[in-house]
């Protein structure tokens, strides 16, 4: 499992810019940003190079922040790549709450992020020969809080 930074955002102009500017000023590099919104508020989900430092920066900037464990899976750039992963999870009875994808620079495979309701999902995927990405490939794991 890897650490995703989840941020509560009121719907107001310029607010996401404030969030990303605060991270930029702290030298934190974003790898993926996904926004989920409701009519009342949004949640920004972020994969970055220093998740714990990002939480600390955003906490002190007054944002509501949680660290959420999510699965990162390498998906080959071929038809059916995601379907194979979802089949494995489905057979194991694992629910996917949300998913999004990004591509790492210089690589052909995509990284898919899955929020799942069962922490054992990583082992199930590994056993099925699917490449689950370890935290150290995406960010500095030893970042102090």
């Amino acid at each position: 499992m890897i650490e995703q930074v989840s941020v509560f955002l009121e719907n107001k102009p310029g607010h996401l810019a404030e969030l990303t500017r605060a991270l930029a000023n702290a030298g934190i590099n974003l790898r993926a940003l996904m926004l989920a919104d409701t009519s009342q508020f949004g949640v920004a989900r972020i994969i970055c190079d220093h998740p714990r430092a990002a939480k600390a920066v955003l906490d002190s900037a007054g944002f509501g922040v949680s660290i959420t464990p999510v699965l990162a899976v390498e998906i080959p750039d071929t038809p059916g790549g995601i379907a194979d992963v979802l089949d494995v999870l489905g057979r194991a009875g694992v629910n996917v709450e949300y998913a999004y994808a990004f591509v790492e620079p210089g690589r052909s495979a995509a990284v898919d992020i899955f929020k799942v309701d069962d922490p054992a999902a990583a082992e199930v995927l590994t056993a099925a020969g699917i490449n689950v990405i370890a935290p150290d490939r995406l960010y500095a794991v030893d970042t102090a809080v």
């Binding site: 995703q4 989840s6 941020v7 509560f8 409701t38 906490d59 509501g64 949680s66 959420t68 929020k115």
Partner: peptide, 14 residues
Amino acid sequence: VAPDMDFDEIRGLE
């Protein structure tokens, strides 16, 4: 919202 809320859970927040 209380600062220790789980902010990833949209359903929880709703």
